[in-house]
Amino acid sequence: MPTFNVRPDIDAAAAKLGSTLGAGREIKRLPEVLWEGETVEMLATGVYVKGNGLLAMTNLRLIFLKHGITGQQVEDFPYGKISSVQWASGLLAGTLIVFASGNKAEIKQVPKQVGKDFADKLRMHIATGSTPGSPTAPAAAPVPQQQDVAQRLATLDQLRGAGAITDAEYQDRRTAIINSI
């Protein structure tokens, strides 16, 4: 596994990748597209539109970065705009489908386990109404309806049951949901 020495958060996420083949240039260029205070939590390789690139999950948004010789392609999906996530897996890889602001983005050829982890973390965000890695829901979140709270708690239970989140994360998210009432 190559060492990139970009930033501690990016290096840690890159170290968890099975292979960085086709994404080395993007990993090195990732700091150029990050916002101030934005940190990288997970990385994956994939194909979006017609280019191989890097999928980055940060504390604020999901980013697809393709840095080629002649140009750069960046598309981001702020968590507040993501309405749904789908994961379709094949033998070795799969497709992560993100529905955001009425658009559908298909990131193909994502390694199987990494893609499942991405989908689970994105679903957790949708279920809890907070960005991945944050301990509580945003202060400006609207007061949820009782049915919405029950649905969010049920989804949270499913994530813990599937092993997608730890017991500590479960307790933090559950407390955030209860406190949002």
Rank of each mutant, 00 (worst) to 15 (best):
K16Q: 04
G161R: 15
Q147I: 01
P8D: 04
M1I: 01
E75R: 15
V49F: 10
K104G: 02
V85N: 09
R29G: 03
G68C: 09
A141T: 11
G90N: 13
Q73H: 09
N179H: 12
Q73E: 02
A150T: 04
S89V: 03
E41Q: 14
A119D: 05
T3Y: 07
L96H: 07
D9T: 03
L65N: 01
L60S: 13
A12M: 04
P132F: 01
L62M: 05
P142L: 13
Q145K: 15
G37N: 09
D117C: 08
A105C: 05
G24W: 02
T3R: 15
M124C: 06
T166V: 01
Q86V: 00
D76A: 08
T95A: 10
A164Y: 04
I126M: 14
L96T: 05
A13L: 04
G71I: 02
N179A: 13
F118L: 14
G133H: 10
A139F: 08
A56H: 03
R152S: 10
L60H: 11
D157Q: 08
L62T: 00
I63T: 11
K81Y: 00
G102C: 12
A119P: 06
L43C: 11
R61M: 00
L60M: 09
A56E: 04
A88V: 01
P144C: 11
T39R: 15
F4H: 07
D157M: 08
K108G: 02
A119W: 03
N179V: 00
A12Y: 03
P144D: 06
G51T: 08
D172M: 13
K104R: 12
E32G: 08
K104N: 00
M1Y: 05
T3P: 00
G80M: 08
T128C: 14
T131P: 01
G18E: 01
I177E: 05
F99Q: 15
G53K: 04
Q113T: 10
G163I: 00
A150M: 07
